[in-house]
Nucleic acid binder design. Structure first.
Lengths: 149, 149
DNA sequence: CCAAAATAGGACTAAAATCATCCGTAATGT
DNA sequence: ACATTACGGATGATTTTAGTCCTATTTTGG
């Protein structure tokens, strides 16, 4: 459907939430689940994938939970999405050379390449640190407009 | 999966094929199906959708078939895809305002807006006439390189 | 050592989307 | 009338999506 799935959406919420917390202190899955409105048992699977892909670190037992495995400045939106959705390919013909045998003569193929390049540009151009900053700016504006009322 | 479905892919092939034929003379679904490698019975459904959305005109009976309903210069790639896949929304939060109640404070929302804008730019910037021209250019290059061998 | 606290991971499932096929109906030109 | 061609509805297999649930396994505070 050419649309992000919940997996991707939830992964972004989770990683962004971790990025917004003081680093080092593990965050419980319950806290992520409740604050980000993601079913806990489902989120559990997503967190596992994020751990496997090396974006998030986990610790079991008391004082356990999840933290970012790397600084928020180094984690992009695209990376986070691809960690749980697999590599983004807007069309099957972009999966790899030869996947679609019409590549050689198909005039649409280069258009998809360009479209994908532009999309990647946007998603790779935003780090979790950027998004935390953006979020804080939005909060600031919301507070101001509430004061005016 | 953030990927075009066969519906979209097949629709593009069909419309592009019609655009490459001399306008006015109806093309049989069998010919489209075989040349574009799309199952005929499946293609039938897609052609119906293209007719309903006003991109293609159909005629039944002898000398029937399909033609473009409008000049190829006026039909974009995006239009063709959306005719069979519905409007493109890279994320559910882009479907309409209020679809995702986190819009107001979600710092990721504007990124999706931008990503979608960029994608639309590319897909809307290519008309079927453009693609036919591109295809001919590719054919030309292929012939030349074959001659060199 | 042990119990409590957490995540890990496997099995399972309902619903929807995807990718089709088949067949009777309707229209159209000769 | 009749051959030809698209229309439209019903049906279905397979895959993906979006979860739930339950049992392990790890960790640590007491």
């Amino acid at each position: 459907m050419l649309q992000l799935t919940r997996n991707g959406e939830y992964a972004v919420r989770a990683v962004l939430f971790l990025a917004s917390r003081p680093p080092g202190r593990p965050v419980l899955i319950t806290e992520i689940s409740e604050s980000q409105e993601v079913p806990k048992s489902y989120l559990s699977k997503i967190m596992q994938q994020l751990v496997h892909s090396g974006l998030v670190r986990s610790r079991r037992g008391i004082n356990g939970g999840f933290t970012l495995a790397r600084p928020a400045e180094s984690i992009t939106l695209k990376e986070t999405i691809e960690a749980v959705e697999g590599p983004i390919h807007l069309n099957v013909c972009l999966i790899r050379k030869g996947e679609c045998h019409r590549d050689d003569f198909c005039p649409v193929h280069p258009v998809w390449q360009e479209a994908q390049r532009r999309l990647s540009e946007v998603l790779d151009g935003k780090t979790m640190a950027d998004l935390v900053r953006d979020g804080e700016a939005i909060q600031g504006r919301l507070k101001k407009s509430r004061r005016k009322r």
